[in-house]
């Protein structure tokens, strides 16, 4: 197992290098630059700005320069926010996105697993239909609709929460709920499907025949196999929750990294684009590895190789 993990970790290095290089050159070939503004600066000012950030150097020179600094963990200064470095921005905002992501994930798992298990046990009853319909609605309603609806009801109508911001624990409720609900819906459907498949298997019948209680059958025998589809979904889902929080962060004005990830591209903030892309790429690669490990652990049919 350790050899497996070590090999996979080694494999990530070239993957990340390719991602960084592709991003570096792609963002440079997009028209417009960090200093392209509605009011154009005079040519001499533009020259000085470019010299300040080393943009007057040949592109390959800048590329190796960037890689050199990257090797030392320096992601460079931000173009858009002159007095902040990309390292600072990430250190500042990643925890916010992580907090939002973990809270949402908690909500998604709690709601999704409960609904999915209930639906599978009482399949084709009103309980199942209610849970499945809610899940379908959850999948269909996008966050940018659900978020404002929740704000309208809980913040504006009831006056219980702030409409947006990220100051105290109450400000966490609506965004985490919004993001969590969407993933809860997917998890519910996957859990239901996975459980139904497992519950029809012979070994479950055997367990029942041996007189195991229904609770024991569900939680001890069925759940482990029934959750496999959910686990394979969780890898991309966690990455999606962390990177895809852009919409939520915008609707609720949350100072997270998801917003920087998207707006940096609009701002042509070269270094910030690279820094966030690199970070998210690392996250996704790592999460996929974790999912693979967990899957082997859950599914006796798989082995590390």
């Amino acid at each position: 197992m350790f050899r497996f993990i070590a090999r996979r970790l080694l494999e990530t290095i070239p993957v990340l290098l390719i991602i960084v290089s592709a991003t570096f050159f792609m963002i440079r070939f997009v028209p417009g630059g960090p200093f392209t503004a509605e009011k154009a600066v005079t040519p001499e000012i533009l020259r000085n700005l470019e010299a300040h950030y080393g943009l007057n150097q040949p592109l390959h020179h800048q590329y190796f320069d960037y890689l050199g600094k990257l090797a030392h963990g320096d992601l460079g200064p931000s173009f858009k926010y002159p007095n902040r470095t990309v390292n600072e921005i990430i250190a500042d905002k990643l925890p916010v996105s992580l907090e939002l992501g973990l809270l949402s994930l908690g909500i998604a798992l709690a709601l999704g697993l409960t609904a999915g298990i209930i639906a599978s046990i009482w399949k084709n009853t009103w309980l199942d239909y209610t849970a499945s319909s809610l899940a379908m609605i959850g999948i269909c309603v996008p966050t940018f609709v659900l978020g404002p609806l929740l704000v309208l009801f809980f913040a504006i109508h009831l006056g219980r929460f702030n409409a947006s911001g990220w100051y105290d624990w109450q400000d966490r409720v609506l965004p985490a709920l919004t993001l969590g609900c969407v993933y809860a819906a997917y998890i519910a459907r996957l859990t239901r499907g996975g459980m139904l498949e497992v519950l029809n298997q012979d070994y479950i019948r055997t367990a029942r025949a041996k007189g195991a209680s229904e609770l024991r059958v569900i939680f001890k025998h069925a759940l482990r196999g029934g959750l496999l589809p959910v686990v394979s979904f969780l890898g991309p889902a966690i990455a999606g929750i962390l990177t895809g929080s852009f919409v939520i962060e915008t609707i609720f004005q949350i100072p997270g990294l998801g917003r920087e990830f998207v707006t940096s591209a609009f701002n042509r903030d070269y270094t910030l684009v690279l820094g966030t892309v690199l970070l998210y790429a690392t996250l996704i690669v790592t999460l996929n590895l974790v999912v693979d490990v967990v899957q082997v652990w859950l599914n006796p049919k798989l082995k590390f190789e």
Binding site: P148, A155, A163, G165, T250, I251, F252, Q253, R259
Partner: peptide, 18 residues
């Protein structure tokens, strides 16, 4: 001074008295 990039969210903040 609140950073209010999303003007729809900003309007909701006004209505909640923020």
């Amino acid at each position: 001074f609140y950073a209010t990039e999303d003007i729809a969210a900003e309007e909701r903040m006004f209505r909640t008295g923020q």
